[in-house]
Structure formats: C-alpha cells, structure tokens
Amino acid sequence: MTLLSVENLHVTFDTEAGVVEAVRGVSFALGRERLGIVGESGSGKTQTGRAVLRLIRPPGRIRADRMVFDGQDLMAAGERDMRALRGRRIAMVMQDPKYSLNPVMRVGHQLMEGLRQRDGLSRRDAHAKAVEALAAVQIRDPARVMEAWPHELSGGMGQRVMIAMMLIPNPDLLIADEPTSALDVTVQAEVLSILDNLVRTRGMGLIFISHDLRLVARFCDRVLVMFKGRIVEELPARNLMQAQHPYTRGLLDCLPRIGGPRTPLPALDRTADWAR
C-alpha cells in the first residue's frame, strides 16, 4: 500500500543571484518500508524531505504534480491541516541536535512539553512516558538525562533524545535526516535497530536521508541516489554496492577501508559528462 506518493517535485529558491533549483523533478512512492535517499551535501536530499512536510520557507517554493500522503493531498492542504499532520502523523528527526534542541530548556522539559500540551497528560504521567521513551532509545541513565541541559549531552545522546521525542506520538511516517551521522558505529547500530523495530512492529514508513552509502545499503529496502537535485539512480539497497552509475560508483570508491592500501583515496571526478 502506498503511504506517500510524490510526482515531479521541484523546490526552488529565488536568490539575489537568480533562481536556485534545489530539487528538480523528483518522483517516488513509499509504502510501509525503509526508503533511503543518498547523495552529497547540496544534492537536494534534505530539501526533498522537508518538502514532504512543506517545511520550505519563502523565498523557497515547492511545486509538484502530485504529493499525496495517506489519501490526503499535501499540495492542497491548508496550514492548519499541515500542522495536524506534522509531528503526529509525519515526524522528522533533524540532523543536528545542537541546533534542534532548545538550548535553554532542560531535556526532560522538552520531552514532556508535547505530552502535556498535545496529549494533555499530567506532569507525573508525562514524566514517566518521557523516561520510558529515553530508555527505549538505549539511554543508560534516563533520570540524569531528563535533568540535563542540551549542551551537557554528547552528540550521540542528543540525537537519541531527538529520536525519542519524535517517536512519542507514534507517527505513520518518519523522515530521518542523517539521524545517525553524529553517532559512532556501536550506537549507530543500536539506533538503527530501534528504527528498524518501529518500521516492522508499527508498520511505520521511513525515509532515511544519509550521505553514508554503506549504512543505507545495510539498513534500507530501496535507495534513491541524488545528485544536483535529480535522482540519478534508483535500486534495491542490497544491490547498492554493485551500482552502475558513475556518480554512485565514485562515492563508493572514495571510502577508506580497513586493511586497504595507504595510497591516496580516489577523488570523485566532477568533470565527467554525467555531472553536467
């Protein structure tokens, strides 16, 4: 069943230097699966994720032939309808906990804010639920983290706090923008298994935006490779390592490998025909 379908999505920004097209004609459909979007910075992967939530502010503009979430036309929805969807049905985990958590609010307070306001829980229930959410993302000492300020957390802890916060309302679709790039491999594996579990048990759809090809190959079902605002290749994640497009190949080949040679790593050739 299709949860989200996007046809011919464009995101453009009017700047002093002219019109910048961040996303140029992206189309995809998502069921209850894990869809990976990979590409370098500036490839338009983040803007694609934000456009689904219509989180592009002027001077940015979104244009699409069709963008439908669970039968609801996102292009025609009013701001009030969008607000009802955001967080509750479609949640987004942002890239950087440093900029996405409120720096002058204790972590516990931030986690409980939604529970108190949106779900009308009592202080005590909200506290219990927040602690539970922190424990669910494998935070060792939830009581301490509840009392902490965001600047007292490491990047990995901050990222897990944000994931906990997004998962509390039980969304149908989670857009995760580089959710694990601030984490190290062991914690990354834990966070991915948490996300994986949610996709399987709750039937949640997941859009996983990342620059890490190996991670996406291992974790997702299907992958879109983006370059300069376009999808250059779409393939099943398990075949990503055998990708054919020269851009995808270039991204794979420039990664260092354990036990690999100490010679300079091959750089990506940006002058080739495909890059124009």
Binding site: E40, S41, S181, H211, D212, L213, G250, L251, C254, L255, P256, R262, P264, L265, P266, A267, L268
Partner: peptide, 18 residues
C-alpha cells in the same frame, strides 16, 4: 572529517596525509 561528505572526506584525508 566526520562532518564531511565521503568524497570531501577522501580529499581531506589525502591532504592530511600529504
């Protein structure tokens, strides 16, 4: 290089080694 793209990471690591 952990804040950088794979291709840029490769260039930066090469630079540091050089």
């Amino acid at each position: 290089t952990s804040a950088l793209d794979a291709s840029v990471q490769a260039e930066t690591l090469n630079l540091l080694n050089r």
